[in-house]
């Protein structure tokens, strides 16, 4: 660095999370639009649980109690939005508790955690309360495929007929699924907002989406046309939500642009592979956690690879 040059400062995590909270307002409104007042209650319970856990952990660890930590609010709201509207209240509450108490607080704060707390919380709920988390039977507003979600149909190997009549319903989230993550158009709008505010974050999203598309094209789950595989796969569950909100998390993302793209690509491949081979309908959170665990490889090994190649001279064979 040249003498006198200003060292680039770390982005303020609080302001970043504030941006994400603004972006989350739209999915919250969609959840209210489709599922009514109960969806807002679920979100409120989840957020309050996250905030109370944060305050309680602060008391135990003798830290300054900060009510309204944006990281906790984001984790609580994101967890709730990935669940169905008819989920029992204790499920998002416990998932948020897990995200803050087990994933966030042991590492000090939301600025140091190596895993995305919302992804870890939802993964915990998926494992422990599978029946509640993937039950879209009650309260769904779907008029296209009944109470069965796209992810569930793909998991069973049923092909989804994609026609001009229902493709718009799929894109606006008018199908059975998580209450706040189904509207793909809204996710694209959120991505556009992120593109204006923090464009480099979207490199992970780009890598993720490209890797998902390539993996689906190469290894389709249903023996049907490309369109019937690709659209339901990308629009089902929380895949697009994770692409915009979870993978772009500023704390757990790699620092360099190429690494961000590769990180997203790995996450995409893992997500589709686990959907194809795993037992769960929604696997994106598991993929995000696994990619988080592999992040040091992106930060150190890939960065140092050119230096290592330069340093190790080829051994000349002398006879």
């Amino acid at each position: 660095m040249a003498h006198g040059a200003v060292k680039p400062t770390k982005p303020n995590i609080r302001s970043v999370y504030s941006d994400y909270l603004i972006m989350l307002l739209a999915p919250c409104y969609m959840a209210f639009h489709y599922y009514g007042f109960r969806s807002l209650l679920v979100i409120a319970v989840s957020v309050i649980s996250a905030l109370l856990t944060d305050a309680f952990a602060g008391l135990i660890l003798n830290k300054k109690i900060n009510f309204g930590n944006p990281g906790c609010v984001f984790a609580g709201a994101a967890i709730a939005l990935m669940m169905p509207a008819n989920v029992p209240f204790y499920v998002p509450a416990l998932a948020s508790f897990f995200a803050v108490a087990i994933v966030m607080m042991p590492f000090g704060s939301d600025e140091n955690t190596p895993f995305v707390p919302a992804a870890a919380g939802f993964a915990f709920a998926s494992v422990c309360f599978k029946e509640s988390v993937f039950n879209y039977a009650v309260g769904t507003q779907d008029s296209v495929f009944g109470a069965e979600s796209l992810g569930s149909m793909l998991l069973k190997g049923s092909s989804v007929h994609i026609g001009t009549a229902n493709i718009f319903d799929i894109l606006i989230g008018n199908v059975a699924g998580p209450m706040g993550t189904g509207c793909v158009l809204l996710m694209l709008a959120s991505a556009a907002f992120l593109l204006i505010r923090r464009p480099s974050s979207l490199l992970s999203t780009a890598g993720f989406v490209v890797a998902c598309i390539v993996t689906v094209v190469l290894f389709p789950r249903v023996s049907a046309s490309l369109k019937s595989n690709l659209i339901p796969e990308l629009c089902s569950g929380s895949l697009m939500f994770a692409a915009v909100f979870l993978i772009t998390d500023p704390v757990t993302q790699p620092k360099k642009n190429l690494n961000k793209f590769l990180y997203g690509a790995l996450c995409g491949v893992l997500c589709i592979a686990m959907r194809k081979m795993g037992a769960y309908e929604e696997t994106v959170c598991f993929a995000v956690i696994l990619s988080n665990a592999l992040r040091p490889i992106f930060d150190s090994a890939i960065d140092n690879m050119p230096k290592r190649i330069k340093k190790s001279p080829r051994k000349e064979v002398t006879e």
């Binding site: 204790y90 042991p106 915990f124 494992v127 422990c128 599978k130």
Partner: peptide, 22 residues
């Protein structure tokens, strides 16, 4: 009233061991 199936899985034990070690 509530059970956590995840605790019977290896990841539950790893988390528990982590907290015990701390």
């Amino acid at each position: 009233p509530i059970t956590f199936k995840g605790m019977a899985l290896p990841f539950g034990c790893l988390i528990l061991l982590g907290f015990l070690a701390a």
